[in-house]
Design a protein around this nucleic acid. Structure first.
Lengths: 340, 340
DNA sequence: AGTGGGCATGTAAGCGCTTACATCAACCAG
DNA sequence: CTGGTTGATGTAAGCGCTTACATGCCCACT
């Protein structure tokens, strides 16, 4: 019988640092050193180890390493869902920055969990720090829960004791946007969206109010509508039925604005002639519809990256910031507001 | 001096199963049992433990558990990026199913990695199985690498030795879509997209060819264009300059179709009068543009869920399927194809 | 030749869990 | 009473890594 030989087709595993060490004829410490790199190892030894790793198809067990070094090298991210471009972009920015920092990202979508507290509790078990989206879809209680387990940063939400926040600017840009609409001569502009659905939308509404006050005008009460296509369409129908009076709509996000605008157009209304419509987010569709949707662009990816970055700094022991970090936004004027 | 007492404001950690056991006056085995549930523990003991857990703010260390039980209870997912709704939806479906199966999901975006092989190698270190998107953005070498480390399923890609595949149907629906366009009387239809950018687009092109052959027609050569907005716009400009001749375009995806369609319209061309345009994916914008974009809807979320499911079955020791699993798609006829 | 200092490697002690097995008390049947 | 059950808990052996420290070797000096 010839000497035994590992068949290369075998799906690996079973190989541990011990089997590698044995095959290479060295100690496990040496294997660990060559795998990690950076330590002094003789070149010939290194080669022997690398060969053994290869032949055995050795894949280190992350859990063992994590246990030994006592951290996970992973960040958690909790988002409501991924419909629409906003969260996806946020996630891209987050993941990209996390990758640079050599952190894995483990994702939890609140929408698909029947037991969110349990899900985040279990998330906390396997990451070093967690970013959460500040949204009504993610109750405060969850943030509090997280907070005394791991470092937490809230995205587009509010800072609190033990919780940092990063956000895009809302109030001033909303004030600017609403002002822009009012300066077109519109006098009955409605805020469509729910100021209570999160600090983000609350601030947009606050800007809406401020712009009116700036001009000595009295703002109308907000029309409370969930920020989704379906709810936008439903609102548009009510508008068509005459249940609301308006010459302009400032919507809490683009999905709302777009669904409303097209529903009105399909019913023969002229936008912006009869009614101006503006949104928030600058989603892809905003530049494809006619008239182009006037909206506000947020640096969403940067926001995600910033969150990942703060998480890492927090984990690395940097002191928590007392205040929220805010990123500037940009008014994108197209034609739906009445501009030509 | 009064007895020492833990302040509740302290950010936890440091607490281990040992400290909990000590505080509760039991052994670590008992703590483990109550935390895991399902084992016989006296009610009074359970309460003592729970109280101690609470007071100490104990968060179990996932790595330690993983090491002891010898699996991660996590699935990896490798996607090219997250721009556009396709991948985001896929991810949603994947995450939702993974959640049901109590698996964490750790995400790797190829786009943000300078060293993808290293990234996936390190991913393999911390998950039990991995789903990869079959795309030219993710080289085959990466899939092969993964394959002899962990169970792998390729999404919208090809099965191979040791690699399962799940996909949405492409060929027949493409044949149907192309046939639909041809049956409108169009005789010079161009396939816009790159058949080599992945099995998905390759099959769509194959369907395009088949539909021509079905009718005794000779298909034009594909116009090789990357499936993105920018490349679509560039192609549209070439078309306007007369560099291509066509009365219909079958685009590899909606982003391409939409950017081409609006560029043509902005230049005064009539769609579908002068030129019919159809896409693939049924993104949100497809129903907002005028004319509505005729396209094909894929069950993207289900595809993600299916992948997560197979991963779990594979991990649980079920035998690999020899063939790819295919989900049906649905032709969505609007007006851009020439229908009224 | 003797000695000290690097360099390369090995030894072994954890890291914080799970779990098979051992123990022990309480109880019941004989 | 005694021995066998049963139920609740404890004991201790890993799981596969990292890393502080110990060891041993080779060589340059004196």
């Amino acid at each position: 019988m010839a000497k035994q030989q590992a068949s290369p087709e075998v799906k690996a595993s079973g190989a541990t640092i011990y089997s590698v060490a044995e095959r290479a004829g060295v100690s496990i410490a040496t294997v660990s050193r060559v795998l990690k790199g950076g330590a002094v190892v003789a070149e010939t030894t290194r080669q022997k180890v690398l060969t053994a790793v290869d032949e055995l198809g050795y894949v280190p067990l992350g859990a063992a390493r994590s246990l030994a070094v006592r951290h996970h090298e992973a960040h958690g991210l909790v988002l409501p869902e991924l419909a629409g471009p906003y969260y996806a972009e946020l996630l891209m920015g987050f993941e990209a920055r996390a990758a640079e920092l050599a952190q894995s990202v483990v994702l939890v979508l609140a929408g698909s969990r029947t037991d969110l507290p349990a899900a985040v509790r279990q998330l906390a078990t396997r990451v070093d720090a967690i970013a959460v989206l500040g949204s009504s879809a993610i109750p405060d209680s969850v943030v509090r829960l997280l907070r005394d387990m791991k470092p937490v940063v809230v995205i587009a939400g509010e800072a609190g004791v033990g919780v940092e926040a990063v956000a895009a600017e809302n109030l001033e840009s909303a004030r600017e946007l609403a002002g822009h609409v009012l300066d077109h001569g519109r006098r009955r502009v409605l805020f469509v969206g729910d100021p209570d659905s999160g600090p983000d939308h609350r601030d947009r509404h606050a800007g809406f109010v401020a712009a009116h006050r700036d001009r000595g005008l009295e703002p109308a009460d907000p029309v409370r509508v969930a920020p989704s296509e379906a709810d936008g369409t439903a609102f548009a129908r009510r508008l068509l039925r005459g249940e609301h009076e308006a010459d302009a709509l400032m919507c809490a996000n683009d999905e709302l604005a777009l669904s409303i605008m097209t529903t009105l157009q399909d019913a023969g209304r002229d936008v912006p002639g009869d009614l101006a419509v503006v949104g928030w987010d600058d989603v892809m569709t905003a530049r494809y519809v006619r008239p182009g949707l006037t909206t506000v662009r947020q640096p969403v990816q940067e926001l995600g990256a910033l969150a990942a970055n703060r998480l890492h700094e927090l984990v690395s022991g940097e002191p928590p910031l007392g205040h929220a970090q805010t990123l500037p936004t940009q008014l994108v004027v197209r034609s739906s507001c009445g501009c030509t």
